[in-house]
Design a protein around this nucleic acid. Structure first.
Lengths: 340, 340
DNA sequence: GTGATGATTGACAGCGCTGTCACGTAGACT
DNA sequence: AGTCTACGTGACAGCGCTGTCAATCATCAC
C-alpha cells in the first residue's frame, strides 16, 4: 500500500542504504544518484515510517510541549510557533499538560514527569512557566537525558532558554506615557512571586526615575494578575483626591487593565479622556474592550518557534543558548494626553 | 539502560511473548503468571517502547487534533479534554494545525493533509470546525483509512461526531430572558455561513414564538461574531425609539456581547439596569468585563474528551456514533428584570 | 483408560529503517 | 608501477515488539 524504502530502492536500482543516505542528506552519494533517488521518492510519494526510523535510531522525531496551566491564549500561540519549527524538519509536536499542584511532593512531581516521558520518549521538551522554574522538573529531565529549552524562565541556568525583556518593555511603555504628558502615572503590580511582576515594576520605576517623575507609593497598587485584584486596585487609585489621582495607570497585565476600565466607568471617569490605561500581554481581550487597549505584545509565537528550533536543529548549527526576543508596544486607543 | 521486554521476561522466567500478553491484557495467561509479570514490570519500571510496538502493530498510539484556526480558548480546552482521554489508555496527542485558506484548490487541501499524515501515521484524528465540514478532508482521511471523529459538524454523516445542541441552548437562554420579564428582546446573529449562526437564531425564534412575544425584524441584527460587528449592531439597536428599543439583547457570541457593553456605555445606558445582555460561548472574556456576562457554556472540554475516547477506545466497547453533550447556562450579572 | 478439548506457553519471523563494515573504483602520491 | 586515500556503494544485522503457529499440559466425557 504505502511505499517503503525498498520500493524506492528497487525502482532506482540502488540499495536501500543508498536511498536512506539520500533521504537523510548524508554525504558520499554521487550527485546523479542523489537526484534520481529524490525524483523517484517524490514520484512514489514515499515518506519514511517514523516508527521504524525511530526504532532504528532510538529517536522519536517528536518534541513535547509541557505546560502547567498557562492561559489558553499563551499556549495556543506558543504551540503554533513550536509546530511550525517542527514541521520544517519533519518533527511533530505532542502536548503534555502537567498538573504539578503545589500539594505534591517533589517525588510525586518527578514521578508524574517520568510517567509521561517513559511512555513517549520524545527527543526534546519545551518547558513553559512555571514548569521551567522547577528544579525537580529540570533534574528529572536531565536524569532522563532529554534535552529541553526553557521559555521565559526566572533565571538562567544550564539549559538554553528563550525569553523577552519584560523590564525593557515596561520601561518603554512608561516612557511613552511620560511623553504623552502624564506625570502621575499609577502602576498595578502583578502576582507576588511571579518573576514578570518584578521585572515589569522595575521597568516602570526606572523610567519614572530617569524622567524625574515621582512614583509615589500611593499610586502603586498590588495586584495578582486577576480581574478582581485589578478592580480593587483601581478603586483605591481612583478614590484619591483630584490632585493625587493618577492621570494614567499602567497595569501589569490586560485583565487588570480591563478591570480598570470597568471601575473607571462606575466612577464616571472617561477613558482615555480623563484617564489613560495601558496593559501588558496583548491578549485577545485587548481588542474587544472599548477603547481598544494599548498594551505590550509578547513574542509568544516566536518564543515557541525558537524553542522548538533549538531542540530540532541539527546540533552542528551554532545556536545561542540564550535568546532574547523583541516585544512590541501596541499603541491603540486607551492612552491620550492628560486633560490639562 | 531502559528496561526492555526481554529483561522482564528473563526476570520472570517466562518468554517475551507471555510478558507481551500480560502487558496487553490478552487472555490465556495464568492468573499467577500474570501477577508475577506485572509485579516485575513495575519493579523494573518497564514501559514499552512505542516505536517498536508501533512498528510491529502498524499502530502509532498517537491521535491527532486537527484544526484550522479556531480560537485559542476553544482549542486549548478541546485539546485538554482529548489529552485526558488519551492518557487513560496510553495514547498521546499531537496537534496539527492546518491552514486550508479558501484560496486553495481541493487538490491542494488534500495534499496538505496527506503531507502531514503521511509522515506521522496517527491512529485517529479529531476534526474541529471548519475542518469537519470539508468534504475534501473527509474523503482524504477515508482514502488514507484513518478513523476520525468530528466535533460540532454542520450535518451528520458517515463518521461519528460529538456536538452540543446550540438551538436548545439559545432556546433556553431566550426563555430565561422572557422569564425575567423582557418583551423586546433583541438578537445579534453570527457569521453567515457558520452553522451555529442558524441554530442559535432558530432557538431564539422558537422561544419567542412559543411565548407569543414578537421578534420584530427591527430588533434582530446581523453580525459576524466579531467585536466590531457587535458594536455596529448595538448602535443600530440602541438608537431605536424608547418604545422600540430592546430591553435585552442576546448576542450570538461573547465578543459581540462585549461590544454591546461598550456601546451601551457610550450611550449612557446602564447594564444591566437599563439593558440586559447575554452572550454565547463563555469565553474567558465573560468574566473580565463588568458586569460579568450571562452566557452559554459549551462543553468544549467534554467534546474533546469524548471525541478522543471514541478514537482510542477498544472497538469492542459499544460507542454511540453521535453524541450530544449538555451545555450550561452561566447566569451572572448582565441580565436583570427590565425597569418597568 | 483413551481421545478430545481447551488453556497456557514459547520459538521464531519480521515490521521498515539505519549503523557497521567491507568492497570496489579512481585519483594522488611516492 | 605500486601504494594510499577518499569516495560511492551494498550486504547484513538488529532496534523492541507482536502475530502466527506449534507444543505442552491439565481436564473432561465417554
Amino acid at each position: 500500500m504505502k511505499a517503503t524504502i525498498t520500493d524506492v530502492a528497487k525502482r532506482a536500482g540502488v540499495s536501500m542504504k543508498t536511498v536512506s543516505r539520500v533521504l537523510n542528506n548524508e554525504p558520499n552519494v554521487a550527485e546523479k544518484t542523489r537526484e534520481r533517488v529524490k525524483a523517484i521518492a517524490l514520484e512514489l510519494r514515499y515518506s519514511p515510517n517514523l516508527a521504524a526510523r525511530g526504532l532504528a535510531t532510538s529517536k522519536s522525531y517528536l518534541v513535547a510541549l509541557m505546560y502547567d496551566n498557562p492561559s489558553p491564549n499563551y499556549i495556543a500561540h506558543m504551540q503554533r510557533g513550536a509546530i511550525d519549527a517542527c514541521r520544517e524538519v519533519g518533527y511533530h509536536l505532542v502536548v503534555e499538560p502537567l498538573s504539578l499542584g503545589s500539594a505534591k511532593t517533589q517525588d510525586e512531581k518527578a514521578q508524574a514527569i517520568r510517567t509521561v516521558l517513559d511512555q513517549l520518549p520524545v527527543d526534546g521538551v519545551i518547558l513553559t512557566p512555571p514548569l521551567c522554574d522547577s528544579a525537580t522538573v529540570l533534574e528529572t529531565l536531565s536524569e532522563l537525558r532529554i534535552d529541553c529549552v526553557r521559555v521565559a524562565p526566572k533565571n538562567g541556568g544550564l539549559q538554553p532558554f528563550v525569553a523577552m525583556d519584560d523590564e525593557a518593555a515596561a520601561y518603554q511603555m512608561t516612557q511613552y506615557l511620560i511623553q504623552q504628558g502624564h506625570k502621575r502615572i499609577g502602576f498595578v503590580k502583578g502576582h507576588v512571586g511571579h518573576s514578570a511582576t518584578v521585572w515589569r515594576y522595575q521597568g516602570y520605576m526606572k523610567a519614572m526615575e530617569e524622567a524625574g517623575v515621582e512614583a509615589s507609593p500611593k499610586i502603586v497598587a498590588q495586584g495578582d494578575f486577576s480581574f478582581e485584584s485589578g478592580a480593587t486596585a483601581a478603586r483605591d487609585l481612583l478614590s484619591l483626591d483630584a490632585k493625587e489621582r493618577p492621570t494614567a495607570i499602567f497595569a501589569s497585565n490586560d485583565d487588570m487593565a480591563a478591570a480598570i476600565f470597568s471601575v473607571a466607568g462606575q466612577f464616571g471617569i472617561d477613558v482615555p479622556r480623563e484617564l489613560s490605561v495601558c496593559g501588558f500581554d496583548d491578549t485577545p481581550l485587548a481588542q474587544v474592550i472599548f477603547p481598544a487597549l494599548t498594551t505590550v505584545r509578547q513574542p509568544i509565537y516566536k518564543m515557541g518557534y525558537e524553542a522548538a528550533r533549538q531542540l530540532v536543529a541539527s546540533k552542528k548549527v551554532g545556536l545561542e543558548p540564550e535568546q532574547i526576543l523583541d516585544f512590541e508596544i501596541m499603541i491603540r486607543d486607551s492612552v491620550a494626553s492628560p486633560a490639562s
